[in-house]
Amino acid sequence: MSGQFSQTRGLVFGVLASLTFATSGAFLKPLLESGWSPAAAVTVRAGVAGVVLIPFAVVALRGRWGTVWTARWRILGMGLVGVAGTQLVYFASLQRIPVSTALLIEYLAPLLLVGFVWATTRRAPRLVVLLGSLVAVGGLALVIGPGALGAVDGLGLFFAALAAVGCAGYYVIAARPSRGLPPVALAAVGLLLGSLSLGLVGLTGLVPLEADTDSVVMFSLEVPWWVPLVFVGIIGTAFAYVSSIAASEMLGSRLMSFVGLLEVVFASVFAWILLGEALTVLQLVGGAAILAGIALVRSDKQTDAPLEPGAVDDSAPDVPATAARSRPDPTFTR
């Protein structure tokens, strides 16, 4: 019963994470239209979120500061892979292929996690998981649209594939046993490290860091440039990352990666409500298919299923797997 409650709570956190991640596109679009580069917006967004979370992390870490050192490699992975690395290769892909194509490839991360376990354990997933994977990815293709299949630039596809690996890596890192490190602390330090890394790479010229401090028009209102950044920093990044990490610890990397596909659905809905962008019947069907795929993957009750990536903390003493786990606008990814 407690395991079922934990998974239900994890699904709630996961849906909230996808919902809040999805606000980024609609609220940052005015900045992009006013001259901000995507890399600059994401760098500042992550920095704002990290600063906002630091006081909460300090309170949560009282009496257990040692967990930060214990989880140092997990924190480094979150900052360098989950935040900075994934963003860098994603933006590199956008310079060569359409946004829809880059998104479709990046969000194949759930299939990578299923395939990784299959390859490393030589134990095939149950039919319901494979069926759920196909249904969810098919729904994702419908939500993103048929234009996602038109790219031919090989290097752009390669960068997008690296982004998919980074996205899968994010879920693996987020799902690893916490060993006492609060999700808010992992998110705070990881986001600050990621923002710093993105900024340093931007200074080298590898990705453009362009910003404009003029007022922007957001939902027909003229507002200061920092208004959308503060909103996205607090809601679409700080709250979203903490919720996503907490959900990943409860659900595991595989299921949470499928729940994360809802971000694309919510982003389309926000674009429809806030920006007036049309929501097609195919997108609605695709959203329903993603929900069906998540339900199928969640329905896998196999108790002796192969361990998923991130389920075991290699640095901790050997314990049973059940005890080891404590459990976008189209331009933007987490």
Results as ranks from 00 to 15, higher is better:
Ser2Glu: 10
Phe5Thr: 07
Ser6Phe: 03
Thr8Tyr: 11
Arg9Lys: 10
Leu11Trp: 10
Val12Lys: 02
Val15Met: 06
Val15Arg: 05
Val15Leu: 14
Ser18Arg: 07
Ala22Arg: 15
Thr23Pro: 05
Ala26Asn: 09
Pro38Ala: 03
Thr43Asn: 05
Gly50Pro: 04
Gly50Ala: 11
Val51Glu: 02
Ile54Gln: 05
Ala57Tyr: 00
Ala57Phe: 00
Arg64Ile: 06
Trp65Met: 07
Gly66Tyr: 09
Gly66Lys: 06
Thr67Val: 13
Ala71Gly: 11
Trp73Asn: 15
Arg74Trp: 10
Gly77Tyr: 04
Gly79Phe: 02
Val81Gln: 01
Gly85Asp: 01
Thr86Tyr: 09
Phe91Thr: 03
Ala92Ser: 15
Leu94Val: 12
Arg96Val: 13
Pro98Asn: 05
Val99Phe: 11
Thr101Leu: 14
Thr101Lys: 11
Ala102Gln: 01
Leu103Trp: 13
Leu104Arg: 04
Ile105Thr: 07
Glu106Pro: 00
Tyr107Met: 02
Leu108Phe: 14
Ala109Met: 03
Leu112Pro: 04
Leu112Ser: 10
Leu113Trp: 00
Val114Lys: 01
Trp118Pro: 12
Ala119Glu: 05
Ala119Trp: 13
Ala119Tyr: 08
Arg126Ile: 09
Val128Trp: 00
Val129Trp: 04
Leu130Tyr: 08
Leu131Ser: 08
Ser133His: 00
Val137Asn: 06
Gly139Asp: 00
Leu140Arg: 06
Leu140Val: 01
Gly147Ser: 09
Ala151His: 04
Val152His: 06
Gly154Met: 12
Leu155Thr: 12
Leu157Ile: 12
Gly166Thr: 04
Gly166Lys: 04
Cys167Phe: 12
Val172Asn: 07
Ile173Val: 14
Ile173His: 05
Ala175Ser: 15
Arg179Ile: 09
Gly180Cys: 03
Pro182Gln: 02
Leu186Glu: 06
Ala188Lys: 06
Gly190Trp: 01
Leu191Asn: 01
Leu191Phe: 00
Ser197Gln: 08
Leu198Thr: 11
Val201Asn: 04
Thr204Glu: 01
Glu210Arg: 15
Asp212Thr: 14
Thr213Gln: 14
Thr213Gly: 15
Thr213Lys: 05
Met218His: 05
Met218Lys: 06
Phe219Tyr: 09
Glu222Ile: 12
Val223Asn: 03
Pro224Leu: 03
Gly233Val: 10
Ile234Cys: 13
Ser244Cys: 13
Ala247His: 04
Ala247Gln: 05
Ser248Pro: 13
Met250Tyr: 05
Leu251Lys: 00
Leu251Met: 01
Arg254Trp: 09
Phe258Ile: 07
Leu262Asn: 02
Glu263Val: 00
Val264Ala: 13
Val264Ser: 11
Val265Thr: 12
Ala267Glu: 06
Phe270Ala: 10
Trp272Arg: 10
Ile273Asp: 01
Gly276Val: 10
Thr280Ala: 06
Thr280Tyr: 00
Val281His: 12
Val281Gln: 12
Gly286Leu: 08
Gly287Ser: 10
Ile290Gly: 03
Ile294Tyr: 03
Ser299Arg: 02
Asp300Asn: 13
Asp300Cys: 08
Asp304Gln: 12
Asp304Phe: 10
Leu307Thr: 09
Pro309Ile: 03
Pro309Trp: 01
Ala311Glu: 14
Ala311Leu: 07
Asp314Glu: 14
Val319Lys: 08
Ala321Trp: 14
Arg327Asn: 11
Arg327Trp: 15
Pro330Val: 15
Thr331Lys: 14
Arg334Met: 13
